[in-house]
Simulated scan of single mutants.
Amino acid sequence: MEATKTAKRERDLTQLLTLVERRVVSRLSAALTAGDCSIDEWRVLSLLADGRGHAMTEIADYAMLPPPTLTKLIDRMVSSNRVYRRVDDTDRRRVLVFLTPRGREKHTALSAVVDDESNRLAAAVGPEETALLSALLTRIAARLT
């Protein structure tokens, strides 16, 4: 009986996490779509905004994308002149990805959109709850690696 209750709680937690993630992503996607950008592209732009250049494996990890999906996304971003690839000067086997000036402009413009949506989300949820949820999810993610 206790095992059934535990399994039920785990399903409920999974469902709740999925529900919240889908609602948050839906809101952010709607905001980004107006700027001709997907969530995945936004994640890539936001990582590359530091100007240091990043390897594909690092970008895939950050954007939570499988490598083949990321490769297709980067190809599209290269075609739209938002990013470019360059061989790493210190390790010629690696390719680094950087923002182009157009990609930097896109990131700057969309940063305001993302900030606005984040503020609306925090207002809807409440700043204390948002901070608590962020802290809890950070701890849980660290424990589950």
Score class of each variant (00 low, 15 high):
A124N: 02
L45W: 04
R139C: 03
V83M: 08
M64S: 15
S111R: 09
D40Q: 14
A123D: 13
D40H: 11
T108Q: 07
R43Q: 14
L65M: 15
L121Y: 08
V114T: 02
F98P: 01
N119V: 06
L47A: 15
G35V: 01
P68E: 07
A131S: 09
L65E: 02
L73C: 10
P67D: 12
T130W: 12
V95W: 06
V44S: 07
I39E: 11
V125T: 11
H54P: 07
A34E: 11
K106V: 03
S118Y: 05
R52L: 10
E117F: 02
S46A: 13
T90P: 00
L132V: 03
H107M: 12
D40F: 03
L73W: 04
L133W: 05
L137N: 01
S80V: 04
S46D: 03
C37N: 01
L70I: 07
K72P: 00
W42L: 08
R43E: 15
L137K: 01
P66Q: 15
A142D: 10
V97H: 09
V113P: 01
P66N: 15
K106F: 03
R102C: 06
E105L: 11
L73Y: 07
E105I: 06
C37V: 09
R139S: 08
T108L: 10
S79L: 12
P127S: 13
M77P: 01
R139I: 07
L136V: 13
E117N: 03
Y62D: 09
A122R: 03
R85E: 05
L45T: 04
T145L: 02
R85W: 03
G103T: 06
R92P: 02
H107T: 11
R85L: 06
L48F: 08
I140F: 10
A34K: 09
T100E: 05
D88E: 13
R94Y: 14
A109Y: 01
M77S: 03
A123I: 04
D116I: 00
